[in-house]
Structure formats: structure tokens, C-alpha cells
């Protein structure tokens, strides 16, 4: 068994209003960053899973993201998996 480190990025789905991201985007030009677009504010969930292989980890993380870590009505997830 291997310990796998997993990062799950949760962000508002495209098309879903993200007022916090929009506020950051509107603020950046005040610091001279004029060319920034599509700012989205999300959250990062880090966890470790003990499993035989990467495919098993992918399956487990997809399942927990769908059923708990995200609300699929309003959020998307992006998963990164590292062998530790």
C-alpha cells in the first residue's frame, strides 16, 4: 500500500456568479494589474489516502468530491494526486 497525497481544488462552476472573485478582479487594477481576468475564489482541500494504485485513488476522490467535498450544483473540482 502506498500513501497518496491529494489536493482537491474546489471553485465556483463557470456561469455561477462568484462575487468574491469578481471583487478581487475589480481591485487588481488599483495595484497596476490591468490585464487580469477570470478571477475565481475557491478552496483547497488536502488529504492523504492509503491505496494500492493511482486509479483507485482517482476513483475514491472523484466519488468523495461528487458526494461531499463539492456541491455539484454550484462547484467544480480539480484534483491533483502525488505519490508520497
Amino acid at each position: 500500500m502506498t500513501i497518496w497525497r491529494v489536493k482537491v481544488e474546489v471553485s465556483p462552476r463557470s456561469g455561477i456568479a462568484d462575487p468574491a472573485g469578481a471583487t478581487i478582479e475589480r481591485s487588481l487594477p488599483a495595484l497596476g494589474f490591468e490585464n487580469v481576468q477570470n478571477v475565481r475564489l475557491g478552496k483547497l482541500i488536502c488529504l492523504e489516502i492509503e491505496a494500492e494504485n493511482r486509479e483507485e485513488v482517482e476513483k475514491l476522490v472523484a466519488d468523495m468530491s461528487e458526494r461531499f467535498l463539492t456541491n455539484p450544483v454550484i462547484e467544480d473540482s480539480y484534483v491533483e494526486i502525488f505519490e508520497s
Binding site: 456568479a17 450544483v73 454550484i74
Partner: peptide, 17 residues
Amino acid sequence: LTETGLLPGALQKNVGL
């Protein structure tokens, strides 16, 4: 109720934050 799936949809942050 929405998170439990007993009602459809979701509640997100107010427009205007």
C-alpha cells in the same frame, strides 16, 4: 434541505457580497 438533497438547487453567496 438542499445539501441533503431533499430540495433541489443550492444557496450561494449573495450578489453584492
